[in-house]
């Protein structure tokens, strides 16, 4: 349990506005996991299931915000998403952490899942219950935004 706590907490902290809410959501996540574990049919899906449970707990806290964000349309044209995938360097972790706060909730969520767990698009789609195409688009724009924020930070004196 101890090994999962930091990652789940980091993820939850990116979803809810207050730190206390993140701790509460983590607490309720473990209780829900403990209660519903027997319903998990495929042990290989545990990681995805765990994050989905955590997400549901966060959504309970901030239902209004989640509903609003779910209606967001990135207006992404999937055909335009091309080029090599970008990922930040190890030494940029602290700056990435700070820049994450400037992203929108859907972008912050998908990119956090990828950075934290190196999840595939399908896994993130399963957690967020969003079509893989939308996740692909969100990841693309999230990375663009993040890259822009990091570069803007570099250019500042």
């Amino acid at each position: 349990m101890g090994e999962w706590e930091p990652r789940l907490l980091y993820y939850l902290r990116r979803l809810v506005p207050q730190e206390a809410d993140a701790w509460d959501a983590l607490q309720r996540t473990w209780l829900a996991v403990y209660r519903d574990l027997r319903r998990l049919k495929d042990p290989k899906a545990l990681r995805t299931w765990l994050y989905r449970v955590a997400r549901n707990q966060a959504a309970t806290h901030c239902r209004r915000q989640f509903r609003h964000e779910a209606r967001r349309d990135d207006g992404a044209d999937l055909a335009n998403i091309a080029g090599p995938d970008w990922s930040p360097a190890l030494e940029d972790a602290e700056r990435v952490h700070k820049a994450l706060a400037a992203l929108s909730l859907p972008h912050r969520e998908v990119i956090t899942l990828q950075f934290l767990e190196q999840m595939t698009i399908d896994e993130i789609a399963a957690i967020t219950k969003t079509p893989p195409g939308t996740i692909k688009s969100r990841l693309h724009y999230a990375k663009l935004a993040l890259k822009g924020l990091l570069e803007a930070g570099e250019n500042q004196p």
């Binding site: 930091p6 990652r7 995938d85 990922s87 972790a93 934290l116 767990e117």
Partner: peptide, 17 residues
């Protein structure tokens, strides 16, 4: 810049929080 974020990156990210 590297192509894929590594588990070490996740650890650094958590450390920054």
């Amino acid at each position: 810049m590297i192509d894929e974020p590594s588990p070490d990156f996740a650890a650094q990210l958590i450390k920054a929080d």
